[in-house]
Amino acid sequence: MSGIALSRLAQERKAWRKDHPFGFVAVPTKNPDGTMNLMNWECAIPGKKGTPWEGGLFKLRMLFKDDYPSSPPKCKFEPPLFHPNVYPSGTVCLSILEEDKDWRPAITIKQILLGIQELLNEPNIQDPAQAEAYTIYCQNRVEYEKRVRAQAKKFAPS
Rank of each mutant, 00 (worst) to 15 (best):
A26M: 01
D102E: 10
K110N: 08
T29I: 11
L119S: 06
L9H: 01
E122N: 13
G55T: 05
D33K: 02
A5R: 04
S158F: 09
S7H: 07
Q126M: 11
L38P: 04
P128Y: 01
P21C: 03
P28H: 07
V142G: 13
K18T: 07
T135H: 04
K49V: 15
E42Q: 09
E145D: 13
R141G: 09
I45Q: 03
D102V: 08
D100G: 14
Q151F: 05
W16I: 05
R141C: 11
L81C: 05
V27H: 02
G47L: 01
W103R: 02
W53H: 01
A156K: 05
W16K: 03
T29N: 15
C75S: 13
K153Q: 09
I107S: 10
W103S: 01
P79L: 12
D67H: 15
R104C: 11
D127N: 09
P80Q: 09
L114H: 09
F155K: 06
H20V: 00
P69S: 02
E78P: 03
C75Q: 06
R17Y: 00
G90A: 05
G56E: 01
P52Y: 11
N124Q: 00
G23Y: 09
A15T: 13
L114T: 12
L63F: 13
W53A: 00
L81G: 04
T51S: 11
E12L: 05
G47D: 06
H20Y: 03
A26V: 01
P46T: 06
P105R: 05
V25I: 15
P80W: 14
C138K: 14
P69M: 01
M36S: 05
G115A: 06
L113I: 12
G115M: 04
Y134C: 07
N121F: 06
N121R: 12
P69G: 02
H83T: 15
K30H: 09
V148E: 02
C75P: 15
T29Q: 07
Q117G: 12
P73Y: 03
A44H: 07
K18S: 09
S71N: 10
P32G: 11
P69Y: 01
S158G: 06
S7Y: 07
K74W: 02
C93I: 00
L81K: 03
Y137H: 04
R149T: 09
K49R: 14
L81F: 07
M62G: 04
T35K: 00
P128N: 03
F77G: 00
P123T: 05
I107V: 14
C93Q: 06
V92I: 07
L63N: 11
K48P: 15
N31D: 08
T135N: 08
C43W: 06
N40Y: 08
K153Y: 05
D67F: 15
K76F: 15
A131T: 12
L114W: 13
E78R: 14
R147C: 11
G47T: 06
L114C: 13
G34C: 08
R104Q: 04
T91M: 10
F22V: 04
L120E: 02
N85Y: 01
L38Y: 14
G55H: 13
A129Y: 06
P72F: 00
P69T: 00
F82Y: 06
I116M: 14
E98K: 14
E98S: 15
T91L: 14
K49T: 08
G23K: 08
C75Y: 03
I136L: 10
N124H: 10
W16N: 01
T51K: 05
T108P: 11
K154F: 04
W41T: 01
Y134R: 01
Q151I: 09
V148D: 01
Y144S: 02
Q139P: 07
D19M: 08
I45R: 06
L57N: 09
P69H: 03
G90R: 01
Q11E: 11
R149W: 10
L60Q: 04
A131Q: 15
I109G: 05
R149H: 10
P157V: 04
R17M: 03
S7L: 10
F77Q: 00
E54H: 08
G56Y: 04
R61L: 11
N37A: 15
P157F: 12
E118W: 08
R8L: 15
N37L: 09
P157W: 13
E118S: 11
E12I: 01
K154D: 12
G50R: 13
K76V: 13
Y87D: 03
P79I: 15
L119R: 05
Q126T: 13
A150Q: 15
K110C: 06
N85K: 03
R147V: 11
P21L: 05
N121A: 12
W53V: 05
Y144H: 03
E118K: 11
N31F: 09
P28L: 05
I136R: 06
L6F: 10
L119H: 07
K59Q: 11
G56Q: 04
K74M: 15
G47Q: 06
W41R: 02
V142E: 13
P73W: 02
F155L: 10
K110Q: 08
W53F: 05
K49C: 07
E122V: 11
K110R: 12
L97P: 11
R13T: 00
I125G: 02
I45P: 07
M39T: 10
I96L: 06
H83G: 03
P46N: 07
L60V: 09
W41Q: 05
I45L: 06
S89N: 06
P32R: 15
T91D: 06
A26K: 05
S158D: 03
N121L: 07
L81A: 06
K76L: 14
G3M: 15
D33N: 05
L81T: 03
P73L: 08
G55K: 09
N140Y: 08
D33F: 01
N124K: 01
R104E: 06
E12R: 02
K59C: 13
T108C: 14
Q11H: 12
D102K: 07
K18Q: 09
N40E: 15
E122M: 12
D127I: 00
R149F: 09
N121V: 13
N31L: 14
R13A: 02
I109L: 11
P52S: 13
K110W: 04
D66H: 12
W41V: 05
G55A: 10
E132Y: 07
L119Y: 14
F82W: 10
H20F: 04
L57H: 15
P32L: 12
C138Y: 03
I136M: 11
N124L: 01
Q126A: 12
D102H: 14
I4F: 08
I45D: 04
E99V: 11
A150L: 13
Q117L: 09
S71H: 14
A133P: 11
H20K: 04
I96G: 06
A44I: 11
F155P: 02
